[in-house]
């Protein structure tokens, strides 16, 4: 913080002022006390604002990006999975599965760089950075977010498609589907009323677990597109050794993950009568 040429007295004074000369356990208990009171402490970077003032706008920005990415990937992923699942074992199925899985393992920054190269540098359709001018309208914001959201969506597509596909395959094989066919229901009705409804259950659970992954993916993507979100904030805090901001940022990331998982569990129970009735008994 004070630079490499700081005198020993200055360091000692700084440490004393910020309480970092106390034992680690004392500092930790102090930090915990702050959390309970809703006080995350102050950033170590001058002018040392309360960390929440730094985290809040970053959190909002990240949420915009994440929601946008999900709006793109969820319909495509489910569609791709259903499409593959209904053609199980055929070339279309193999194609979707292999391409989806391959895209899922390529690091986000690689996908993002290729997207930037093609869509902003070669074709000139979309802006290179995600950060818009202050006071930009909704449409401009969407244009800026399009590439980073696409990069995240491409990585997620494979997971969602795979789970949907597995669900469809399982449901197609199930006794109730055979019964529905034998009842004489037309194929379309069987698929929409019996197969898809059952197949989409695990998909919801997986989409929720991917939120945690998404926050991690945000680090590289926000850095690449220079977007002031939670991921870039954690990264900058780590680079500047701003430990208060770093710990608070990681805490917020963990809490976001927990909250999203909880919401997904509740949504899962609401949608699934088996769990709903079990809980009622």
């Amino acid at each position: 913080m004070l630079g490499p040429y700081a005198t020993e007295e200055a360091v000692a004074a700084y440490n004393h002022e910020h309480g970092t000369d106390r034992p680690a356990v004392v500092q930790y208990v102090d930090w915990l006390r702050g959390i309970v009171r809703g006080d995350l402490g102050n950033s170590l970077a001058p002018p040392e604002p309360p960390v929440w003032d730094v985290i809040e706008p970053a959190l909002v920005n990240s949420m915009k990006l994440a929601v946008f990415a999900f709006l793109i990937v969820v319909p495509f992923g489910i569609l791709g999975g259903v499409f593959a699942g209904l053609r199980v074992g055929r070339p279309t199925d193999r194609g979707i599965t292999v391409v989806g899985l391959s895209l899922a393992v390529v690091p986000e920054f690689v996908t993002g760089l290729v997207l930037i190269l093609v869509f902003s540098i070669w074709l000139g359709w979309l802006p290179v950075t995600a950060q818009w001018e202050p006071g930009a309208g909704a449409l401009t914001q969407v244009r800026h977010l399009a590439l980073p959201a696409m990069a995240l969506a491409i990585v997620l597509f494979g997971y969602i498609a795979r789970i949907t596909r597995a669900g469809v395959v399982e449901a197609l094989d199930a006794d109730y589907t055979r019964t529905a066919y034998l009842k004489g229901l037309p194929r379309n009705t069987v698929i929409s009323r019996h197969v898809l409804r059952n197949a989409l259950m695990p998909t919801i659970a997986v989409i929720a677990t991917q939120v945690g992954y998404l926050v991690g993916g945000l680090v590289a993507i926000e850095y690449l597109f220079n977007y002031q979100g939670l991921g870039l904030m954690v990264l900058q805090a780590a680079q500047q050794k701003d430990f208060t901001l770093l710990t608070a940022g990681v805490l917020v990331v963990g809490v976001v993950y927990l909250v999203v998982t909880l919401i997904a569990d509740i949504a899962f129970a609401l949608l699934n009568p088996r769990i709903r009735f079990q809980a009622a008994e």
């Binding site: 992954y213 926050v215 680090v219 990264l235 780590a238 940022g249 990681v250 963990g254 993950y257 927990l258």
Partner: peptide, 9 residues
Amino acid sequence: AIPLIVLAV
């Protein structure tokens, strides 16, 4: 509960 890259950083 902490994403891999955040944890690694």
